[in-house]
Nucleic acid binder design. Structure first.
Lengths: 203, 203
DNA sequence: GCTCCATCTTGTCACCGCCAAGATGAGGGT
DNA sequence: ACCCTCATCTTGGCGGTGACAAGATGGAGC
């Protein structure tokens, strides 16, 4: 099935997504085009149409792929961190920022309201799964702060989410300079909101 | 000079910027085009070129205009608020979010790294002026927290900025639902980071 | 009144996403 | 073994885009 003939590409759909992901980071969303991706894959300009009826569908597939890596980035940081709420929260934030700085164009695409079709349930699930990681990590924080109402928990989640999210955007948009020490250690700075939320666990 | 003849438009540059701003919110950045703007203004498709050598130059002009309104939005909220640091900070954040929700497409454009030319000093100054408002409002906060090092002040500024900025993005990207009570009072929710930064001034 | 040149128009190019129509060949049924 | 179906891919073309070139227009200064 995956054999390549002169006419039939082995797995064009996967090739388009993979090539699309690398060309996205290479060219940026503005200069990415279906025809360029098709050309690099080695098929005609209309070949992608059967797999992705429109560019929007391909971008959706890229975003779904992105949310998977995004979730993994947070979880791998959390697994390498101590179990204390503050450490787990810091680790998740580190994963959030690490993904954004590693794939800035993909990160922006994943939160783009105009270019993506958010009615697509596949994209919705992927985004929700990533969001769930943050939600879970915020619950112990709310417990520590003696917040036990649903609205209170949502409020904490929004507070934490908006802070990393804004930090990520300001970093990849060049508004906040990355600490040179972080670059040297190949690390990523973590916003110090945690210090205010959980001051007794500082460290 | 501002008289309109059959051939010479009175003030085409201003007309392009004004029409561009309204069409930006109307169509979104993706569907905005020089030719559409020119058509609505009533000139030929190549007329804008003399005033804006490329689309990028026009977008820069829109962003500069946007940063002016942005700054005004924050300052007008601050002038209507008590002089206490917490109230002033809350007011600035309210102005920040009010602008973002009122002009979501323009707001996104103003922080777009790819479509704007950030080497343009005019755009740089405009952005810096808006940023200065937040910087000024964060200084009393740092003083209250007994933070007196330059790095500490920058850290507080980044913390506050990233939180509103992320909140603004999540709102206009449809990730955070706006409280219906806020819509009823034609108001805008303010993130409760202030409660953690200045707990003794709550209210 | 005349000239100069900023301003605007017309025409064209390559590229884009999308659509239509046709070529190809893998896989299943007989 | 044969054919037939149809998913897959190609070629060709459409309107729209930003950028560029060359020419038309007319206001402003002499």
């Amino acid at each position: 099935m995956a054999r390549r003939t002169a006419y039939h590409h082995g797995d064009l759909r996967k090739a388009l997504v993979d090539t699309g992901l690398s060309m996205l980071e290479e060219l940026g969303l503005e200069d990415l085009s279906l025809r360029k991706i098709a050309a690099r894959v080695g098929v005609s300009h209309a070949a992608p149409e059967h797999h992705f009826p429109s560019l929007r569908h391909l971008l959706n597939a890229l975003a779904v792929e992105g949310f998977g890596s995004f979730r993994q980035s947070m979880q791998s940081q959390m697994q390498a961190a101590p179990a204390r709420p503050a450490d787990q929260l810091r680790a998740a934030l580190r994963g959030y920022l690490a993904f954004a700085t590693a794939h800035p164009h993909l990160f922006r695409l994943m939160f783009n309201r105009n270019r993506l079709d958010w009615e697509d349930p596949v994209l919705g699930k992927a985004g929700e799964a990533a969001r769930q990681v943050l939600k879970d990590i915020c619950r112990p924080v709310a417990d520590r702060l003696a917040i036990d109402t649903p609205e209170g928990r949502v409020s904490i989640e929004h507070l934490v989410w908006s802070q990393v999210h804004g930090y990520a955007h300001l970093m990849i948009d060049g508004k906040i300079e990355v600490d040179s020490a972080c670059e040297a250690t190949n690390s990523v700075p973590v916003p110090d909101l945690v210090d205010f939320l959980l001051p007794d666990e500082a460290g």
